[in-house]
């Protein structure tokens, strides 16, 4: 039996075990987002909206498409990509919660129901087991959420196309999504960078999952919260909070989106900010410190797992 077969079995188990968190929950969130967006677009004829200070009110989805197309002339693809990024934002934010709770339960739940004894009765080392749990919690949700997001957006575009065609609109604008697809494809390697950058947080949650006798949420959250509170009271500073916050959003804070003119520039700034922040990470020493800190927590989780009985 090859190692590949073993790792495939571990991966399949992770997908099965985290199915609700990694697939069902994102699918439900995306379904709600798509539904609300479709309803909002359908509501245009009833409410009537206006864009900018000039021009007539818009009373149909077809008029909306025409007007938006005029406003974004030459940058239609970036306009659509910005729109799709906006629609996918709720699910992107939810991913952090999905990762947190999946990791939190990964080593705790099987200790609680004693099924860890079954896993330990198999010829799988504790290192392999814990790493499988880690990747199942820290990487898998990003991948599944990305797939669910694309599927949801395609459903949304199909719905919008049907509505637009029914109203005689030019629906070609809706499918100018090249920049978004580029960003979507790039996000997969970015996930690896994100995972490494966030390793101190995800490693800590995994460690909490491996040691918490009960209430793993409190075990994972209270120590950093206490550290932040003590630092605030004693030193009147917030470096711990800043450091932790940067693990989630690595932006320096001084390269935001300012003084942009039109959708094209807005999208360019937005994508440069998103990609730039993540792609710059390997050039920073802090990146490698993060990996070391996170790896230490994972090593502790493996050690704890080894002697759980």
């Amino acid at each position: 039996m090859s190692r590949l077969t073993k790792y495939a079995a571990l991966a399949r188990r992770e997908v099965q075990e985290t199915w609700t968190g990694s697939v069902i929950t994102p699918a439900l969130i995306m379904a709600v987002v798509v539904l609300v967006t479709v309803l909002a677009l359908s509501a245009v004829p009833q409410g009537g909206i206006s864009i900018g200070d000039e021009g007539p009110d818009i009373n149909s989805f077809a008029e909306l498409l025409d007007r938006v197309g005029q406003e974004a002339e030459g940058d239609e693809d970036k306009l659509m990509s910005t729109f799709l990024l906006g629609v996918s934002l709720p699910l992107a934010l939810a991913t952090y919660f999905i990762v947190f709770f999946t990791l939190l339960g990964s080593l705790y739940e099987d200790r609680r129901d004693r099924s860890f004894l079954f896993w330990k009765s198999m010829p799988v080392s504790d290192t392999e087991e814990v790493l499988a749990r880690f990747l199942g919690g820290a990487l898998l949700p990003f991948v599944t959420v990305n797939l669910v997001t694309l599927a949801g957006l395609l459903v949304l575009l199909v719905c919008a196309t049907v509505v637009g065609l029914a109203q005689g609109a030019n629906v070609g604008l809706l499918w100018q999504i090249g920049p978004y697809l580029q960003l979507w494809l790039l996000s997969f390697p970015l996930f690896v960078l994100m995972m490494l950058w966030m390793l101190p947080l995800t490693g800590w949650v995994l460690f909490a999952s491996s040691v918490a006798p009960r209430a793993p949420f409190a075990f994972a959250v209270l120590p950093p919260v206490l550290a932040m509170a003590i630092e605030g009271v004693v030193f009147n500073s917030g470096r711990v909070a800043e450091w932790l916050g940067r693990r989630i959003v690595p932006m320096a804070g001084d390269d935001g989106i300012d003084d942009v003119d039109g959708f094209g520039e807005f999208y360019d700034s937005l994508s440069a900010m998103m990609l730039g922040d993540w792609l710059d990470l390997p050039t920073m020493p802090e990146f490698y410190v993060s990996i070391l800190v996170g790896a230490a927590f994972i090593a502790l989780a493996i050690w704890r797992r080894r002697y759980t009985s």
Binding site: M1, A9, L10, Q16, E17, R114, F116, F118, M122, P123
Partner: peptide, 21 residues
């Protein structure tokens, strides 16, 4: 105690064991 993972079906358990053992 019953240690088989409760969220799995028998077929899934067999798939897993077949893959790792």
């Amino acid at each position: 105690v019953a240690t088989l993972p409760k969220w799995m079906t028998a077929a899934q358990v067999f798939d897993y064991v077949e893959g790792v053992h």
